[in-house]
Nucleic acid binder design. Structure first.
Lengths: 213, 213, 213, 213
DNA sequence: TGCTAAGCGAGACGGTACGTCCCGTCTTAAT
DNA sequence: ATTAAGACGGGACGTACCGTCTCGCTTAGCA
């Protein structure tokens, strides 16, 4: 939200919350494309300039509203590493369900042309669930349940990306069973014998560059 | 593209290609949000109604133009499974680079309200690179390089999603080295001792539901 | 009204009349100051751009609407010169009643900064009733009922100005009786002995400039 | 100006005069339509609320400023009735030149919806020059230079209205020569033989109502 | 002398109406 | 029935200015 001056008439804080609530309501009912500042203002019982004074664009407004909705993301500590990773995926699922692909798409597109918006997006919507997941992975690592050479940031990406992907393209679901399969695949790997494959790769292309090690 | 009547003056096929080329040019220069049918028509040397006669909406037009650009996706057979999977990730990277997140976002959002558009999107842009990757994984499986119980469709998702995710959010890159680390993590897994973790999970929560097996 | 092109979709003529009628209705109900293009458009069942396409400003719109209302002004030929001049005053009264001082004031002020608007005003609202009055005076002159040296254009001014003045400032009425007194004063003059006054004026100020002759 | 309380910090009288002067300056430079309370306050070296505390509206403020400018109107006694009436017309011309049609128009329109403003207008701007003219006519009457049956209030109207009319519509000037012609027409009348015309009028319409006598 | 009430500069506030952009559609005349 | 051409009816935009309010302080008269 735009910074507020020390002097002059102070902003009515009821308008702030009313506008954010109205934004969420309109998003849910009509979607992002049909969201109009006029309509948001009308439902918040105020007018367009009052909205623009607080958020300089539709994008910033929607971002703020979604940030409010997302609140803080937290992954429970179940005491079991597999279940904890399960829980991580559910953190992403919950976060995404509250955002909706229909809103996320145009918002990300707008971020591409607006570095400030991009930063706000990362801070408000992207980082919080990732931090929760990262924390869980660190706990597992300290218990000795993860390989020493596992790139934990990459695992956060793999967990998060899958949820976004499936939600955006709607080609597959995010049921408990599907989440379980994902955890299993990530934890145990998919190769029958990784060291052998790696040796073969090296043997085949002696002079080439090998990023797998 | 809209069906054409048999009688009356036939459509000028040059207009079709000129419009698609103009669409790609405008997309690259101005982005999806600033793409105007007026501007596309102007650059194709024709007028708005001629465009609307062929594609009923901006979305359909952009989809057709991107389909033209993407063409067919193909993953080389290197003879080495690790390198083949490397190659798969690059298939996605190439496909995505040609589409651009700025276009993909709003397009997906529009798909959410238009089942026909969604189907067209899947057929033209989503499925082709996935099919190429799936084909590579099947080859690895037949060589015995993948576990019997590996869910190959899930692996396609994990590979594809990571690329989309990183391209959309721009928080991490898609260099050769990063791709290599991903392949390694997927192939060998991240757990120190998966069977033990699984046993612990079962022991801890006797009556609960266990999706990891 | 703005000129219309030969090609392209033709304007809906119903909108033209609906907008003018709505303008008159809003003028009568709310006055000129509270007349809003939005409100006019709403009552005409259309939108702002459709109005702006036809009339470039609120002033031009109001002018057109008043021109429509005023229609043609005509002074009856009663056969009696005194009654004809009576009738002339009533022409002005009728014209003015249809315009209203509340509208005339701001409109004239806007004319001061816009020569085109000023010309349009004169053509549509100012000249027609004056022409009718002038015609009556010419008829009286041809009958020999007016002095040879009477400045008929000045008489038109004196008749017209009185009505505007009283309507604008509302300090006196325009009843039949008051109109009769005006006609009498104008026709017979107010001086007891004009030639003597003139002589006195000349005698008193030998070297000065005398505009009364 | 709004009433002032006895207690509390007294108003700074310098602000009163500074605001009125600034109002006149803005009126002359930018006209009434572009006169902004903000701008007046800025030029008076103060702020909007200080202005609104003193005058409740732009209209009242402008009225006060014009009243200050107009000051008292006075018609010289030349010793010659024709010249005195000449002088009367010039009183109106001077008064009007200081007010300007661009300001008068909107002001009168606002008076139409505000009886208090209307009264203030009459007291401050309308009556003073009229009183001066009326005084001159009374002097002429006492000298026996005006007909016994001349309606002096009507003559004030005819003189005043002509000036307003010509200034408002700008279709004719107010040069000395034009003023002279007006005086002549008013004094000597325009009919060749008023009694004959009156007789004819009566003869023609026996039962009708005759306001000319 | 301290209290109180109003004025002060400053400036943002809530809100009305503006004039414009661009959309997707329609009409015309010609092919 | 399509074409090129171009204006149309209309939804939403972001802005300018209105008149009001709140702030923190100053200034006088009353107690």
């Amino acid at each position: 939200m735009t910074v507020v001056s020390r002097t002059g008439r102070p902003r009515d804080p009821h308008i702030d919350t009313a506008v954010l609530k109205a934004t969420l309501a309109v998003l849910d009912e009509s979607g992002y494309a049909r969201l109009t500042i006029d309509e948001v203002a009308r439902r918040a019982g105020t007018t367009k300039p009052a909205v623009y004074r607080r958020w300089p664009s539709r994008q910033q407004l929607v971002l703020a509203a979604l940030g409010l909705r997302l609140g803080g993301a937290r992954a429970r500590d179940t005491g079991c590493t597999l279940c904890d990773v399960d829980e991580c995926l559910r953190v992403f699922v919950r976060a995404f369900r509250r955002i909706s692909p229909e809103v996320l798409g145009p918002l990300l597109a707008d971020c591409a042309n607006d570095a400030q918006l991009q930063r706000a997006f990362m801070t408000m919507l992207f980082d919080p669930p990732r931090a929760a997941v990262r924390h869980t992975l660190d706990r597992a690592y300290e218990k000795g349940d993860l390989r020493e050479d596992a790139d934990r940031e990459l695992v956060v990406d793999l967990l998060g990306s899958l949820i976004y992907y499936r939600a955006l393209f709607r080609h597959a679901g995010t049921s408990d069973q599907e989440i379980g399969r994902t955890v299993k695949a990530l934890m145990q790997g998919i190769a029958t014998d990784y060291p052998r494959l790696l040796a073969h790769s090296r043997a085949m292309s002696a002079g080439r560059h090998h990023p797998h090690c």
